[in-house]
Nucleic acid binder design. Sequence first.
DNA 1: CATCAAAAACTCC
DNA 2: GGAGTTTTTGATG
Length: 155
Amino acid sequence: MPTDNGDFLAHYSEKGLVELNFPGRHVNGDTQSKETMSAEIRAWYQITRAALHKMLAGERVDKLPPLDATGTDFQKSVWREMQKIPAGQTMSYGEIARAIGKPKAVRAVGGACGANPIPVFVPCHRVLAANNKIGGFSSGLDWKRKLLAREGINV
DNA sequence: CATCAAAAACTCC
DNA sequence: GGAGTTTTTGATG
C-alpha cells in the first residue's frame, strides 16, 4: 500500500482489517498480489488506502474499512475508547483509564496501546502522558510526532 | 490447567 | 526518584 511516506503493509481476515504495519517493518512471506485477493478485500484495500492518505495529509477521515483487531477484552476496550478521540485532540493514558472505568489501570493502558495492531486508524498517537509528554510509540517516535504535527498538535 | 513473578508507551507524592 | 495499580505474558509444577 504505497503512500507519500513509504509502503504500508495491511493484513485482512474475512471480517476486516486485522493489522497495519508502518514502512520498514515488513515481514515478507505471505503477501498477496491485488489480483489474487477477493473482491471484498480489494474494496477494503481501496478504502484503507484512501483513508491512510487522508490521515497522512491531516484531513478528517470519514470512511474506514471494517476493523477486525484481535486482543483481550481489556485491550479492545482501550482501542474502542481511543477511536473516539477526535482528530486534533489528545487524551492522556490516565484519561483513557478513567473512561473505561478503571482509573488506576493507567499502566495497563500503556501496555494495551503498545499491543495495538492498527496504528493510525486506532489513534494511539493521540494519547500522551499526563504532563503532556510524548510517551512512546511502537513503530518509532518519529511517526508519532509526524502524525501529531499533521493534526496541528505540538508537544 | 493453576499459580507466580516480572514488566509495561503511567501517575502521583 | 520511588511506590502503587492493573493486565499481560512466559515459566513452572
